[in-house]
Design a protein around this nucleic acid. Sequence first.
DNA 1: CGCGGTCGCGCTAACGTTTGCGCCGAACGG
DNA 2: CCGTTCGGCGCAAACGTTAGCGCGACCGCG
Lengths: 369, 369
Amino acid sequence: MEDGPTREEGVAVVADGTDRTSGAELPFADPAGRPTLRTVAELAGVHVSTVSRVLNHVGGPGVRPASRTTAERIRRIAERVGYSPNPHATGLRTSRSRLVGVLVPRLVDIVLATIYEGIEEATATYGFSTFVANTGDDPTAQRRRTEMVLARRVDGVIFGDAYVDGRFLDEVAGRGAPFVLVSRRAGDYPSVTCDDVLGGRLAAEHLLALGHRDLAVIAGEPYASTGIDRTAGFLAACDAAGVHVPGSRVVHSRFDTEGGRAAMSRVLADGAAPTAVFVVNDFAAIGAMGVLRDAGLVVGRDVAVVGFNDVPLAGSLPVGLTTVRSPMHEMGVRAAHLLMRRLGGEEVASERLVPVLVPRASTLGDRGA
Amino acid sequence: MEDGPTREEGVAVVADGTDRTSGAELPFADPAGRPTLRTVAELAGVHVSTVSRVLNHVGGPGVRPASRTTAERIRRIAERVGYSPNPHATGLRTSRSRLVGVLVPRLVDIVLATIYEGIEEATATYGFSTFVANTGDDPTAQRRRTEMVLARRVDGVIFGDAYVDGRFLDEVAGRGAPFVLVSRRAGDYPSVTCDDVLGGRLAAEHLLALGHRDLAVIAGEPYASTGIDRTAGFLAACDAAGVHVPGSRVVHSRFDTEGGRAAMSRVLADGAAPTAVFVVNDFAAIGAMGVLRDAGLVVGRDVAVVGFNDVPLAGSLPVGLTTVRSPMHEMGVRAAHLLMRRLGGEEVASERLVPVLVPRASTLGDRGA
DNA sequence: CGCGGTCGCGCTAACGTTTGCGCCGAACGG
DNA sequence: CCGTTCGGCGCAAACGTTAGCGCGACCGCG
């Protein structure tokens, strides 16, 4: 039994000497030539289970997975041959995948992309990877894409495209897959959102303070809590100030530039232009500004516009866009942490992050340039 | 051993009795309660290998995996219990994962997000899923993220963040991981790009035709083929027309709004403003326009600006942005197909897609509004 | 010096799937 | 009625990893 070192030498020689078709020619490599636990075990002259324990039990001050010298040697060899565990084998054995699925309406929406960046960044620190899938806010696609991520055996899901009624989520919950929501709330499911009601209120107070009384709202999709809450907060603040916004002046829209164009056109077609417009999304606001421009109105002088989110280019537009800044990246990060805690079995509560108004030329005119 | 049919009846009753929904107590389910091959096999009264053959061998007109009736029954039962194969087990067995890794500089860049959408859409039709990771164009992050996707045993990788020198890619190629590039070319590796040289030429010809002779270029990052080629095409066309653009008028920049601001500021600080600027990215162009506005110059009248990509909001800006439209989504789709063909063992060639100039107010002035 | 506790470590049985091999029974030709 | 063929299907061996079990050795304490 004194052959531990000898065996190591012997195999090392074989590894050097043999000359197989692909790559580094390690003993007991997998079909792709990558080293496996067995490779390392063989080179270290120990059993594969010992290698497994050493490589997995990172912390554990109390119980040690192997003697210090053995552990040291194993780690050195694993490093040298570039061992990395096969996630399929691990996943199969443990039935956990260190994978999370992320569903978003559209990734080309900077808001969601920013949130996703936060998610990806935070999950990576836990050693998790993420799948993203677009659903385009289409229920069929939501269902199909959710099936897909579940079929991939993700450990959890983050929905960025929740419908406020939460019916679909009830189904998913029934399947036992842990999930959290981000950006939009729904039902009583744990979510990380911006305080959208407050955001709407900030927008209203800003416009009211500037003396506007003739207002319109471009309210986003009727199924998204973001648009709903922002609009509700805005209208509530107007009410409180004794300013009435007629129903015909609150129009739904998609959240993109094109949606803003369409909605603004409808507002203008409906009669005289309002003196101020609150648009629940910056890109829709840009679209709305385009229509106003085409109608010969100067944004910031003839009509004030307030957007929502403060996307990076809002300040660089030819007419800087007044907007309500929402902590998008932060929301992603927090949603990821929330999910991780749920995966740990914790009961978690929703979080609502605070938005801030950023005044610019689109409401202040020259003073804001 | 003669209890095959009997067993089927018995178990089928159990399965019916508990009536659908999640906790349905299926026999031989996995730890999460999901049905496995074994579950289906048991219910059908056949061996697990038979189920596997039936469920996998979709086509095969010549050889049949089982008798018609057996196959039918198996498929029915699989459907009923909601069987979906465990990708870890499949991956372990076949050492293929139906996963592709996608590396991009930043997903909040609409250009890359759009390309990614194309990739995701196309790979999904092959039954593949995608990991995306941001690298921020940072070599260290590129290396780390690449390690990460390879450690996940992806079948292939799509790089959207290639450095033109391709040194890092040489390493990756040495590891034997199949990959293709998208958006940016590098070395002789297969890539799907826009014909950026042509795009630069289109921009130059447009400005020259409008009579501009005093030109500047905001050229993007020096390591990205997109910026390099667009700039080269632009300068070559100027040369051909006998117009010289001094080196001090060609400045590098990041590809985002902020990068455009910084670069434009440097151009203005350097002396008199040019009469026209070619910016190799729409967002950088927006930043540049912001700086021009702040300098009291009216874009489209005092200074012409041409961007690149034609992102959706380019046309909705208060001053519509003249830009070179690149087929972003299409590039993603094609890159995905290209990778799939590589995975099939084919030798593949790079593709270059044709861009189109879209003239708007930023060069045409009022005529473009 | 004796005894109990602790620690190192190897063995083995899974995890769910795929696949080559070979058996069995039915059909068919002689 | 027997021999051959062949389609259908079961068997079992992997794939790489994890974890429970149990044995032996060492250590420290009394």
